[in-house]
Deep mutational scan, measured.
Amino acid sequence: ATNIVSKVKWYNSTKNFGFIEQDNGGKDVFVHKSAVDAAGLHSLEEGQDVIFDLEEKQGKAYAVNLRIK
């Protein structure tokens, strides 16, 4: 899926990962520091509106092509 609009559930800049809620009630989506860095960001804030693409690797959903709404 591409261009999903949602909100950051939480992000831990010390552990370099977090999760984004899915508005459709699906499972929370993992977001890694590499996606945050690629977006030119230093961190994410809880409740922040984001747009991302969903990529599945080894049966897990990852946020990629992250951008701020």
Rank of each mutant, 00 (worst) to 15 (best):
A1I: 12
A1H: 13
A1V: 12
A1G: 12
T2K: 14
T2R: 12
N3D: 12
N3Q: 08
N3C: 11
N3I: 06
N3W: 07
I4V: 11
I4E: 04
I4P: 05
I4F: 07
V5Q: 12
V5S: 12
S6V: 05
S6G: 15
S6E: 02
K7M: 05
K7A: 05
K7P: 03
K7G: 02
K9V: 04
K9N: 02
W10M: 04
W10E: 01
Y11W: 10
Y11L: 00
N12K: 09
S13R: 13
S13Y: 11
S13T: 12
S13G: 11
T14F: 13
T14L: 13
T14D: 12
K15P: 01
K15H: 08
K15E: 04
N16S: 10
N16Q: 13
N16Y: 09
F17K: 02
F17W: 08
G18Y: 03
G18M: 01
G18S: 01
G18C: 04
G18K: 01
G18R: 01
G18A: 02
F19A: 02
I20D: 01
I20Y: 01
I20S: 01
I20G: 00
E21G: 13
E21P: 04
E21R: 15
Q22W: 15
D23C: 15
D23F: 15
D23S: 15
N24Y: 11
N24R: 11
G25H: 09
G25R: 09
G26L: 11
G26N: 10
G26A: 11
G26D: 10
K27G: 10
K27E: 08
K27P: 14
K27N: 10
K27R: 12
D28W: 05
D28S: 05
D28E: 07
D28P: 07
F30H: 02
F30W: 05
V31S: 00
V31F: 11
V31Y: 02
V31A: 01
V31K: 00
H32Y: 05
H32S: 07
K33H: 07
K33E: 03
K33M: 06
K33C: 07
K33R: 11
K33D: 01
S34Y: 08
S34C: 11
S34K: 10
A35W: 05
A35Y: 06
A35K: 04
V36P: 00
V36A: 03
V36Q: 00
V36L: 15
V36N: 01
D37N: 14
D37A: 14
A38T: 08
A38I: 09
A38H: 08
A39K: 03
G40P: 01
G40E: 06
G40S: 06
L41Q: 06
L41V: 09
H42G: 12
H42F: 12
S43A: 12
S43P: 07
S43N: 12
L44A: 00
L44W: 02
E45M: 13
E45G: 09
E46G: 13
E46W: 12
E46N: 13
E46M: 14
Q48T: 09
Q48Y: 06
Q48A: 09
V50N: 00
I51K: 05
I51N: 03
I51M: 12
F52E: 00
D53M: 04
D53P: 00
D53S: 05
D53Q: 06
L54G: 00
L54I: 15
E55K: 11
E56M: 14
E56Q: 12
E56K: 11
K57M: 10
K57Y: 14
Q58C: 14
Q58H: 14
Q58K: 12
Q58E: 13
Q58W: 14
G59F: 05
G59V: 02
K60Y: 11
K60A: 08
K60E: 06
A61T: 14
A61D: 07
A61L: 14
A61P: 08
Y62H: 08
A63T: 02
A63K: 01
A63Y: 03
V64F: 06
V64E: 04
V64I: 11
N65C: 06
N65F: 04
N65A: 04
N65K: 07
L66V: 09
L66Q: 00
R67C: 06
R67P: 03
R67T: 06
R67K: 09
I68N: 07
I68R: 07
K69T: 13
K69L: 15
